[in-house]
Computed example of a mutant assay.
Amino acid sequence: MKEITIIGAGIGGLTTAIALEQKGFKVRLYEKTEQLKPVGAGIILASNAMQVYEKLGLRKTIEQNGYPISKMNITKANLKPLTKVDLSNFEQKHNIKSIAIHRGTLQQILIDSLTSTEIHLNHSLKKVIENANGYSLEFNTKKQSQTSILLGADGINSVVRQNLFPNKRIRHANQICWRGITKYNLPIAFKNELNEAWGESGRFGFVQINKNSVYWYALKTFSSSKNELSLNAIEKYFSTYNPVIKSIIAATKMELINTAEISDLKPTYAWYKKNACLIGDAAHATTPNMGQGACQAVEDAYVLSECLSKYDTMKAFEIYQNLRLPKAHQVVKTSWRIGKMAHLSNPILRGCRNLLLKLTPTTINKKQFKRIFQIPNL
């Protein structure tokens, strides 16, 4: 069986390697970082991702190391609810709980689940050269590697994509996101649920990820330059929010807060070329407004591994793209709209938005999540 090379050892790349191993493929994995250090952030594994991890035999381990979520709420800055999504129906339907977990913990679970794949660290891909036998890969180490099948799981700034699909455009949302994890005892009313508070030109979300820790994220819009927003002023930015939110920020060590600009990939309709294919953020990077970025990469891993086990390479890539592209694009487009709607600055528009959220029937929200949580039956 042909060897498969994956570029990128993030959640998507690691999950794909596990899925391919279980199908009997030999996999090589290259990662640009020198060490796979745990990032100080959490991750929400919704029902679609947890269904995949159930198929891969990892559900129980993930559940034991994370914290279940049964509700997802959008609120005002004072934490008064605007809309709620009860996940219990999906839990019963799929016999799966959504799990909030430390990203580093999930990463280690995935690494420990690999049995034969060697991860080559400190290998930053510089160039992809197509040849008669597949692709020659040039790395920062001056090392060259040959592969017959290439998978790009190297994120929104994918070098694989830049080499093979150079005309794809990254979109900037003009928003800064801060992420942190802190030891904090959440009031019982907020346990087992994700809460996201929408205020003026910003929002704040938090969720418990284990018995003692809370993962949180905060976003603010900038008008002209991301430099106009400072981590040192984060407490001021959210000073009008509920006291629980202010105390979560105060309990977090500033040096452990991760700062990033929010961007996505403008929807593209070509994910593969001959024996090379993109997965995860390399194919469909999304803004983090639906909690589906990593989940969509996990879903990619499952669908692609199933296709490669049943069809020749190019046919597998074609079917994978046909199955995954419509849903991934739906997530990207919807997430972009939510991000803009959440950051309204005009008080009249915010009032109209809040009223609309309150009046939206729960059946509409459930219908949307039903589509997102459904994974292909291959």
Rank of each mutant, 00 (worst) to 15 (best):
3 E>N: 10
3 E>G: 09
5 T>H: 05
6 I>Q: 01
17 A>I: 11
18 I>A: 06
24 G>C: 11
24 G>Q: 06
28 R>H: 15
30 Y>C: 10
31 E>T: 05
32 K>A: 12
34 E>L: 10
35 Q>I: 12
42 G>K: 04
49 A>F: 05
56 L>Y: 05
57 G>A: 04
64 Q>N: 12
67 Y>W: 00
67 Y>Q: 00
69 I>D: 04
75 T>D: 04
78 N>V: 04
82 L>T: 02
85 V>L: 15
87 L>D: 04
88 S>T: 12
90 F>I: 15
98 S>P: 13
100 A>E: 13
101 I>T: 07
104 G>N: 09
106 L>M: 04
106 L>E: 02
109 I>T: 03
111 I>Q: 00
114 L>Y: 01
116 S>K: 13
120 H>I: 03
122 N>D: 11
123 H>N: 07
124 S>D: 15
125 L>W: 08
125 L>E: 10
126 K>S: 04
127 K>A: 08
129 I>S: 13
132 A>K: 15
132 A>L: 14
133 N>K: 12
143 K>R: 10
145 S>F: 09
145 S>T: 11
151 L>E: 04
157 N>W: 03
161 R>H: 01
162 Q>A: 10
162 Q>V: 04
166 P>S: 08
167 N>D: 15
172 H>W: 08
175 Q>L: 08
178 W>R: 07
180 G>H: 03
192 N>F: 09
195 N>F: 02
197 A>S: 11
197 A>W: 06
199 G>M: 03
200 E>F: 01
200 E>N: 03
203 R>W: 11
203 R>M: 08
208 Q>D: 03
215 Y>N: 14
217 Y>N: 02
221 T>K: 15
231 L>T: 11
231 L>A: 02
231 L>Y: 03
231 L>Q: 01
235 E>S: 07
250 A>M: 02
256 L>F: 10
262 I>S: 03
262 I>Q: 02
267 P>Y: 05
270 A>I: 07
270 A>D: 13
274 K>T: 10
285 A>W: 08
289 N>R: 03
289 N>K: 05
290 M>K: 07
291 G>Y: 04
291 G>M: 02
293 G>D: 06
299 E>K: 06
307 C>L: 02
323 L>Q: 14
335 S>H: 06
336 W>H: 00
339 G>C: 07
345 S>H: 13
345 S>T: 00
349 L>R: 10
352 C>T: 14
354 N>A: 06
358 K>S: 05
360 T>K: 05
361 P>R: 12
365 N>M: 11
365 N>A: 14
368 Q>P: 05
369 F>P: 15
373 F>W: 12
376 P>G: 08
376 P>L: 01
